[in-house]
Design a protein around this nucleic acid. Structure first.
Length: 425
RNA sequence: GUGGCCAUAGCUCAAUCGGCAGAGCAUCGGAUUGUGGCUCCGAAGGUCGCGGGUUCGAACCCCGCUGGCCACCCCA
């Protein structure tokens, strides 16, 4: 066994699987361009305060999953690896005075996030998210734009049966009254609650709503529904979000038990699931509105909304659904030689062709021609460029490895010839 | 953070009752010295996850640790 391994909950993404990842990143970037969400990169770590204030100090993400960086000196700042993207993006929004930009500011971020969680399938300590944020627009239309953008991404990734679950969780004006009503409801039936759920009642009663405990599922049928306790402004907003989605032809499934785990969410909350795969670990992405977050991080009161899609889970779901994804592309040609030791001329010919922009590998192993051709064929290359005695007249053998045919070609004609072939003629 | 299942070559897996660690694939080499994916031959590759214990003897039984998976918790 090797002495060192990738840290728990992390993994190496090997060449064979990278093309599928790159394809997802390409989709994310081209959709971001098309929708006008411009790419931003923020540090992988921030001051702990950014997350504690932004995500919420009493959330699981902060209390038990934050990757804290041990300070080097007593008076050093305390840092942590980012567990999600929104807090850092909003910090950047405030820091760079983006409130003076045309509003809303549409941003996208693609990168790794870190949570000190117990690993499981589809759950890693380092995982990748695609973040979309629109900061500075309170209107319901932008909610619909973003929700549809997420669905569009899944479709382009080959996942046709992803749907959005939608809820509104109110705002600081109306939510406290609802939580009180909810608390009172559970208090009346305290003896029916499992001990574990009783504890959560004190810390975060909303959480009981999406519990899977059978006893609680039964009780929750009678629980007060948040969308019936919204203030007029929140209720109007929610209705208009749904109207906008309907106008787009986007199906949305009401989910009154949907409560997101981060403190900063207000009003719109949504999660993406594959139809028939609605378990808690199966969320492919989620997001919501965070109208108080900019202010929490030192800016003016500014509305915002966004989502985070888990790329690791998209990859897993593609595999599960049998979606065809790109694989490693072989070079169009491999330069091989009759003289096993003639690595210098093989390297020179390949280098010249690469200078013309052609993906060409040279066989640099000192081995006989048969082995070189074998390797080229197994790699999937279309052509082998065979260097032999003809080289003294400026010619090579161009062998078509698929057709098993070959012809003598002037070495000077190779670039144009291969270029034509690589464009699929 | 809680509970359960698992860990043998790079990968997928065998190894009878506790009695000399194996196969397929992959890698490298050879099959009369300029022609490939097939075939044949061969080589290399192991701290049986790690550390203790029981035993004449442990891949196999017991304990601990690490890691993976699953169910919780929670999230993406």
């Amino acid at each position: 066994m090797p002495p060192y391994r990738a840290p728990r909950g992390t993994r190496d993404l090997l060449p064979a699987e990278r093309p599928a990842w790159r394809a997802l990143a390409d989709i994310a970037r081209s959709l971001s361009d098309a929708y006008g969400y411009r790419e931003i990169e923020t540090p992988l770590f921030e001051q702990v305060d950014v997350f504690e204030r932004g995500v919420g100090a009493v959330t699981d993400i902060i209390e038990k999953e934050l990757f804290r960086i041990a300070p080097r000196t007593e008076d050093a700042e305390v840092w942590a690896l980012r567990p999600e993207g929104t807090a850092g993006i909003v910090r950047a929004y405030v820091q760079h005075g983006m409130q003076t930009w045309p509003q809303p500011v549409r941003l996208m971020l693609l990168g790794p996030m870190f949570r000190y969680d117990r690993p499981q399938a589809g759950r890693y300590r380092q995982f990748w998210q695609w973040d979309i944020e629109a900061i500075g627009d309170a209107g319901p239309a932008i909610d619909a734009e973003i929700i549809e953008l997420g669905l569009r991404f899944y479709r382009e990734a080959g996942l046709e049966d992803v749907e959005v679950h939608l809820n509104s969780i109110g705002d600081p004006g109306c939510r406290p009254a609802y939580i009180e009503a909810l608390g009172a409801f559970y208090a009346k039936r305290l003896d029916e609650l499992p001990p574990h759920e009783r504890e959560r009642l004190a810390t975060n009663p909303l959480r009981l709503l999406d519990s899977k405990d059978p006893a609680l599922v039964r009780i929750n049928v009678d629980a007060p529904v948040i969308t019936e306790h919204l203030c007029d402004a929140c209720a109007d907003h929610f209705a208009e979000v749904k109207d906008h989605l309907d106008a787009l032809g986007v199906e949305h499934r009401p989910e009154t038990g949907l409560v997101r785990g981060l403190d900063y969410y207000t009003r719109t909350a949504f999660e993406y699931y594959r139809r028939g795969r609605e378990g808690q670990q199966q969320a492919l992405g989620g997001g919501g509105r965070y109208d108080g977050l900019v202010e929490l991080l030192g800016g003016k009161h500014t509305p915002g909304i966004g989502f985070a899609l888990g790329l690791d889970r998209v990859i897993l779901t593609q595999q599960d659904a049998g979606v065809e994804v790109p694989s490693v592309r072989p070079p169009i040609a491999v330069v091989v030689g009759a003289d096993p030791g003639g690595t210098a001329e093989r390297l020179r010919v390949a280098t010249d062709l690469r200078a013309e922009g052609l993906p060409v590998r040279a066989d640099l192993a000192i081995r006989k021609l048969g082995r070189q051709l074998e390797a080229a064929a197994r790699e999937g290359s279309r052509f082998a460029i065979i260097l032999g005695d003809e080289l003294s007249e400026g010619n090579v053998q161009l062998r078509d490895l698929e057709a098993a045919s070959q012809k003598v070609v002037a070495i000077d004609d190779l670039p144009a010839l291969l270029l034509r072939k690589s464009q699929g003629s």
